[in-house]
Design a protein around this nucleic acid. Structure first.
Length: 485
RNA sequence: GCCCUCAUCGUCCAGCGGCCUAGGACGCCGGCCUUUCAAGCCGGUAACACGGGUUCGAAUCCCGUUGGGGGUACCA
């Protein structure tokens, strides 16, 4: 039997990292088994669903490199993959369930429900609605005939229990005493998540439901519904949720939670995908940096961790650095050049682009995020460097600063060529001449030229800057140093 | 409150009754390299939540406690 899985997010917010991971695990499982990955929109909540969020989800999945075989945008044998366009089907199923006695119109008032809940709670019992106020068929008929509305509830068999085998959690058992007669069709005729999702899973022939643990306790409802529809329940796998660094539920107060935010902050899709894969699953050996092919080859739901993992951006950044360094130099340039341009507020001309391409590899070596590049190279493309105060304070106030600047000027002004080897030779001679150590002698030059003590290598920076501007910066730094002393 | 669920270094993962004086990765600390910062290389720090069982033997199995997470809607 062909494996068929789905990722069915509600477009009620931007795709977050946890959703991305759920999608990734579904995709890996499908690809590992030569199955079908379906993308569906569980957008029954018309109030909160928006096209913008829907688009963000599509963008996020595509960015992560996940492709789907059926579903939104690509279509498929089951037609529409949006719940908002399948309303009649859910109503039809609900009606059939009422006809068969598996569900019923519920006439209980909100007040009745509330007092039941309150009573149960104060008695220390499960606050479960078990059809206590279920009306007779005649009463229901009368109510409806008079134009009254009512939600349809599923009649959970009592007593009873639902037992199933979860691929990541093992054997699970739920006593129906703790399962509500849940609403499947609201009084306005729209389906709830339970109905719509289950109907779609049955209709689309979903064989494995891989989703977040937040719906674990609703699973008995879905199995019961499936059975009542005459369907074969899927195999379930519930993934533990992601937490923030403090071990609490991951939320905005922990920082960015949307995939989009990380993309914009310079995280590479490959790094994010790899990190998400490793967060709750292990490829087996000690390797953690793994290709998508390897992930697909080794992925097993039964090997997925049961405990909630902390989404740790430190490790994500480390991994991003690994991916960044693995990038071909040209690609790194292509990816970061727009960021440099936006930092400058203008585009680079051809000459400048060539300068950037020459210096970029040195930046690539030390970057953790794509966004780290621009701040390190803007000194090349502005008329006057802005000195970093801390850097200036640290090196320019030292005795050697003046000696180094004057010495460098003397050596460089008459230099024949302007390439980093020649510059290095000249400056090392300067060191020798004044008896300066490399760090004492070169740091002032670095700050003079790049504005900061953290920058690409000195000689390459000087070469890239060009003779005129380089000398000019050394001079103005020397002037400032002498005026301050 | 009630129901479900989870529990190995600060974090992620390995471990599935003896190979564990618990392994790897990130982080952190130290060293090397070195013109800075990184990167790289080398070394170090650090954990089986607690209490009972079961067993010749438990990180591994069972029970309880504690703590975390989820659910408890005509939201998904």
């Amino acid at each position: 039997m062909t494996v068929r899985v789905r990722f069915a997010p509600s477009p009620t917010g931007y795709l977050h990292v946890g959703g991305g991971r759920t999608a990734l695990y579904n995709w890996l499982f499908a690809r590992h088994n030569g199955g079908v990955f379906i993308l569906r929109a569980d957008d029954t909540d018309a109030e909160r669903s928006t096209p913008e969020f829907q688009q963000d989800i599509l963008d996020g999945l595509t960015w992560l490199g996940l492709d789907w075989d059926e579903g939104i945008e690509v279509g498929g044998p089951h037609g529409v993959y949006r719940q908002s366009q399948r309303l009649e089907r859910y109503q039809e199923v609900a009606a059939r369930l009422v006809a068969s006695g598996a569900a019923y119109y519920d006439l209980a008032t909100p007040e009745q429900l509330e007092s039941l809940r309150a009573a149960a709670e104060s008695a220390g019992r499960s606050p479960v609605y078990a059809g206590t106020h279920r009306a007779t068929p005649a009463q229901v008929h009368g109510h409806l005939a008079e134009g009254g509305v009512a939600p349809i509830r599923f009649a959970v068999p009592r007593p009873g229990e639902t037992i199933f085998e979860d691929l990541v959690r093992g054997s699970l058992r739920f006593d129906h005493a703790n399962v509500d007669d849940f609403v499947i069709l609201r009084s306005d005729g729209t389906p709830t998540y339970h109905l719509a999702s289950t109907v779609d899973d049955v209709d689309f022939g979903i064989t494995h439901v891989v989703r977040g643990e937040d719906i674990l306790s609703s699973t008995p409802k879905h199995i019961l519904l499936t059975l009542a529809m005459g369907g074969e329940p899927a195999i379930y796998a519930h993934l533990a949720l992601l937490n923030g660094p403090d071990g609490k539920k991951l939320s905005k107060r922990h920082g960015d939670t949307s995939l989009r935010a990380y993309r914009e902050a310079g995280i590479l899709a490959g790094a994010m995908r790899n990190y998400l894969a490793i967060l709750g699953w292990s490829p087996g050996d000690d390797e953690e940096v793994v290709s998508p092919e390897t992930m697909i080859e080794r992925f097993e739901l039964t090997a997925v961790s049961r405990n909630p993992a902390v989404f740790d951006t430190t490790k994500l950044e480390w991994m991003n650095g690994v991916y960044l360094r693995a990038l071909p130099a040209a690609e790194f340039v292509e990816l970061t050049r727009p960021l440099v341009e936006s930092e400058l507020g203008r585009t680079l001309d051809d000459r400048e682009a060539a300068v950037y391409a020459a210096i970029a590899p040195f930046v690539q070596e030390r970057a953790k995020r794509l966004t780290d590049a621009a701040p390190q190279v803007t000194f090349l493309f502005v008329d006057d460097v802005a000195y970093d105060d801390a850097s200036w304070e640290k090196v320019m106030t030292k005795q050697e600063a003046r000696v180094a600047l004057d010495g460098a000027l003397a050596r460089l002004e008459g230099l024949a060529g302007w390439d980093s080897p020649s510059i290095e030779e000249a400056l090392r001679a300067m060191l020798e001449e004044h008896g300066l150590s490399a760090s004492k002698g070169f740091q002032p030059l670095r700050v003079a030229v790049t504005g900061s003590s953290v920058s690409p290598p000195l000689f390459e920076s000087l070469e890239a800057l060009g003779r005129e501007r380089a000398l000019q910066r050394l001079r103005s730094a020397a002037d400032r140093v002498s005026s301050e002393s």
